[in-house]
Design a protein around this nucleic acid. Structure first.
Lengths: 194, 194
DNA sequence: CGCGACGTTGATTTGCCTCAACGATTGTGG
DNA sequence: CCACAATCGTTGAGGCAAATCAACGTCGCG
């Protein structure tokens, strides 16, 4: 049941059977239906989620109702409002399931305890965050330095095969452009090739 | 000499005197002059830097010679090409001193050793990266959701008092706009107030 | 002093947005 | 199994934000 998560941990650190058991005792599995939310604005985020199955998006909605997708998460990714989890401030994000799926939930308090009980976990998350930081930095650079089309190309390499799983207007939102303009971009790209 | 770094560590973790000594034995102080580089494209980054004094920028330069600033670092910040440091790929970034200053340099190999010798260091960097990730995520959100002016306002809260230390065209570059347009933005802002 | 670095301002162009209309597809209840 | 609505993608006309290019003013510094 938790094999996939343990496998992810073992990519970076060694876990004794006892530690693995301890970990498992402090986490829980949660099934979610398409369009359900894991996080909604106004709460204080207390849980970190590991995607076991399915596809999720984190997005922000401004006062005019416009949505901006900040992140997608597929199998093996962590997703939460890290800002709220870290600072205790109110969440401003939604985290929504784009398909029926399941996540492994770890409550902040259990997490803190686990960090003491299994110090190696600090290393695991150090590496996870480091990787996420590299991604975020590259995305920032792309956004300020490249045209929307180049930015799109980079997106495809970071999220391979995601185009089959999420509607096009969400990809546009992630890229920071409108669905209409995104559609025109793709039309032009086809012309260029031929 | 290394007091400032130790102080930063102690904000998040406890260090015994022995551990502090061990740490100090594996790091070095490096003085840099204005316009000197800590990192230049084409190398493989092997060192992480902690800013003890001064002001630095990381930037990318494209084939047309355009520069894009991805990060500023003031006293107490870490700066490096984390991508190259992490993956071993060639750096594409410059890291340059904007003032005479000094950094504390930690070589990757020493760092890895220290992570084993002082496991708590994992926790420190987990938290440092987590914070940096929160910042980067907010920056992404701002860039795709807000106008250049709002984005500028947020910048000021993240880097207070930096306007006195770096030229305006670099702030424009960080924000992803041209110096000319940035100048016009500020002119309009003054009008609004009066 | 004279040069280079930096900031400003204006004219023009371009990338992307907004609004609106229109197919295509999917899902759902009668 | 069909009618209908809802969701999603496409296309076009017009508008705005920001880029580009060029000229000019100002300051600090060798």
């Amino acid at each position: 049941m938790y094999e996939f998560l343990l496998q992810s941990l073992r990519k970076y650190i060694l876990l004794s059977p006892e530690e693995a058991d301890l970990l498992v005792s402090r986490i829980s599995l949660r099934k979610v239906k398409k369009k359900q939310w894991l996080v909604t604005p106004g709460e204080i985020s207390k849980t970190d989620y590991f995607v076991n199955k399915g596809c999720f998006r984190a997005y922000y909605q401004d006062d005019n109702g416009h949505q901006y997708i900040t992140k997608f998460a597929l199998e093996g990714w962590w997703i939460s409002d890290i800002l709220s989890l870290y600072t205790g401030e109110l969440t401003k994000l939604y985290v929504e399931a784009l398909e029926d799926g399941e996540v492994i939930a770890i409550h902040k308090d259990n997490m803190d305890q686990l960090f003491d009980e299994i110090p190696q976990l600090n290393k695991y998350f150090r590496l996870v965050y480091q990787k996420a930081l590299v991604n975020a930095s590259e995305r920032v650079l792309c956004t300020i330095s490249q045209s929307a089309y180049d930015h799109y190309m980079r997106f495809l390499t970071q999220y391979p095969n995601i185009e089959q799983r999420v509607p096009q207007y969400m990809i546009a939102s992630y890229l920071g452009i409108t669905p209409e303009f995104f559609s025109k971009l793709k039309a032009q790209a086809v012309k260029k090739i031929s």
